[in-house]
């Protein structure tokens, strides 16, 4: 990365902040497994545990982007494995539309990611995080959707 692009991307030391919505039964457990197995993964994510990927209101994702997240990852159980049978399958339709809509209004698609990770897939979770972090990093700090406040002394 040249110095100039580095600056444009927030200067030295900028690290993407990524919000990860993980379902309780699979992906959160997968993340946990990655942790207890001492698998290295990027420290850029802030995990929010939700009962099911079906619980994720698409507004959560939009709101994360508005509040300052550079990227969002949503992860749930593989199709067929949902603890609530089909929450992830309903969710999948919503996510497909939302991802497409965000891209349509000009938000970089590299910021919003979806995956299925089971409780046994610790290494896979770490891998995905690496991929997602690289992807978000490639488009630099978010600015478009972020709500700006006055400087307060």
């Amino acid at each position: 990365m040249t110095k100039k692009t580095n600056e444009k991307m927030g200067g030295n030391g900028w690290e993407p902040r990524i919000v990860a919505f993980l379902c309780n039964w699979c992906s959160y457990a997968g993340a946990d497994l990655a942790g207890v197995s001492r698998i290295q993964y990027p420290p850029n994510v802030r995990v929010i545990r939700v009962p099911c990927s079906g619980r994720i209101n698409p507004l959560f994702i939009v709101k994360a982007l508005q509040t300052g997240a550079d990227g969002v990852l949503v992860s749930g159980c593989h199709p067929g494995d949902c603890h609530y049978i089909s929450g992830n399958l309903y969710a999948r339709r919503k996510f497909a539309l939302l991802k497409s809509l965000l891209e349509y209004v000009g938000i970089e698609p590299q910021r919003v990611h979806f995956s299925w990770v089971s409780a046994a897939e610790g290494p896979r979770f770490a891998e995905i995080l690496g991929k997602v972090t690289d992807s978000v990093r490639s488009v630099g700090p978010a600015s478009k959707m972020i709500k700006k406040f006055e400087e307060v002394a």
């Binding site: 399958l89 309903y90 999948r92 497909a96 979806f114 995905i128």
Partner: peptide, 18 residues
């Protein structure tokens, strides 16, 4: 309605890691 239903084989191509 489209969002109150699903099909097992719905598109997943939008996903980073399906």
């Amino acid at each position: 309605e489209a969002l109150s239903s699903f099909r097992m084989e719905d598109d997943q191509s939008f996903m980073t890691e399906p």
